[in-house]
Nucleic acid binder design. Structure first.
Lengths: 103, 103
DNA sequence: CCTGGTGGTCATAAATTTCTGACTTATTGC
DNA sequence: GCAATAAGTCAGAAATTTATGACCACCAGG
């Protein structure tokens, strides 16, 4: 249980960036919903009260970029898109559960 | 490895609040330094380039409130204060290390 | 007595994030 | 043809976070 790995390059905190990616007003909530079932843009808008298109759109993009969600075109004709949790995303679940037990 | 615990009360994400407490521009960096050694206010100001009194002061208060740091008066006469990592804080280290391996 | 360090607070300014409302392209149902 | 849904984008406003500079009280050294 060394803490050396936490102290890589002088002056920069690796966790700082990670947390930044995971924070943002709606990202944790989006992530949680994605753990339960695939997401659709319009569905999120209805499920997450107080949220808005703009921010959700950005959050989905960012979660995709980190590799936690994957954008899947189910049908292009009557446009149907779904956001699926990736392997990486599933790997994050136990970490979050552990976080809850500590704090 | 159920995800039920992540889905407590409808509409609220437990992790959302936790991440909010851990995020903030300098909190992760402060935490990391605290893992290495006890902190002093003026020391932080020198170590963390680009930070400022106000924000550090607030961050320390918040980290104290969550219970990750403890404010210790070493000497009152020539005022000497230190912020020590708590048990809870130490418990967080492996979680952060796990986070790094995933993302 | 003057300068410098420690440990802050306070009001305000600047920067960043989030929200609002309008608008887009394409498809289905009536 | 008209309205509705899906999945967004865009510009600008509002809210939240972070930074700046001034200021306080206390102690120590020269």
């Amino acid at each position: 249980m060394t803490t050396r790995n936490l102290t890589q390059d002088a002056g920069t905190c690796p966790v700082q960036g990670l947390l930044k990616l995971l924070s943002g007003k709606w990202k944790p909530e989006i992530f949680r919903l994605a753990v339960e079932a695939p997401l659709r843009f319009s569905g999120l808008l209805r499920q997450i009260h107080g949220s808005n298109r703009q921010t959700l759109s950005l959050a989905l993009k960012e979660l995709e970029e980190i590799g936690l969600l994957e954008k899947v075109v189910i049908k292009p004709k009557p446009l149907h898109i779904e956001y699926h949790l990736t392997e990486k995303g599933r790997a994050l679940v136990p970490v979050f559960l552990q976080l809850e037990t500590i704090l």
